[in-house]
Amino acid sequence: MAFIDYYKILEVTKNATENDIKKAYRKLARKYHPDLNPNDKEAEQKFKEVNEANEVLSHLENRKKYDEYGEHWQQTDAYKKAKQQQKQYAQQQTSQGDFGGYTESDFSDFFGSMFGGGNAKGQNRQTKFRGQDFNAQLQLNLKDVYTTHKQTLTVNNKSIRITIPAGVENGQIIKIKGYGGKGVNGGPNGDLYIEFSIINKSRFKRDGDNLYASVDLDLYKALLGDEITVNTFTGKVKLTVKPETQNGTKLKLKGKGFPKYKKEGQFGDLYITYNLKTPTKLSNKEKELFTELSKLR
Rank of each mutant, 00 (worst) to 15 (best):
N156Q: 14
N156Y: 10
N156T: 13
N157M: 13
K158V: 12
K158T: 11
S159E: 12
I160A: 00
I162T: 00
T163C: 05
I164K: 05
P165M: 02
A166Q: 12
G167R: 00
G167L: 02
E169S: 14
N170D: 13
G171M: 01
G171D: 07
G171R: 09
I173Q: 07
I173F: 01
I174A: 12
K175N: 09
K177V: 14
Y179I: 13
G180W: 03
G180A: 09
G181M: 06
G181V: 13
K182H: 10
G183K: 05
V184T: 15
N185H: 15
N185Y: 04
G186Q: 07
G187V: 10
P188T: 11
N189Q: 14
D191C: 10
L192A: 01
L192T: 00
S197P: 07
S197G: 14
S197V: 14
I198H: 02
I199N: 08
I199P: 02
N200Y: 09
N200C: 03
N200K: 05
K201A: 12
S202H: 04
S202D: 06
S202M: 01
F204V: 04
K205L: 15
K205Y: 11
K205M: 13
R206Y: 00
R206N: 07
R206V: 04
G208L: 06
G208R: 06
G208W: 00
G208E: 02
D209Q: 11
N210M: 07
N210G: 05
N210L: 05
N210H: 00
L211I: 04
L211M: 07
Y212N: 07
Y212K: 05
A213K: 13
S214T: 15
S214W: 10
V215K: 10
D216K: 15
L217Y: 06
L217I: 04
D218L: 00
D218M: 11
D218N: 09
L219A: 15
A222I: 01
A222K: 10
A222S: 07
A222Q: 03
L223G: 11
G225T: 10
I228F: 01
I228K: 00
V230K: 02
F233N: 14
F233Q: 12
T234P: 08
T234L: 14
T234D: 15
G235E: 01
K236P: 06
K236R: 11
L239D: 08
T240I: 13
V241A: 06
V241L: 07
V241P: 00
K242V: 11
T245W: 02
Q246I: 10
Q246F: 06
G248Y: 08
G248E: 07
G248K: 11
K250F: 03
L251W: 06
K252W: 08
K254T: 14
G255K: 03
K256Q: 12
K256S: 10
G257N: 02
G257T: 04
K260L: 08
K260T: 05
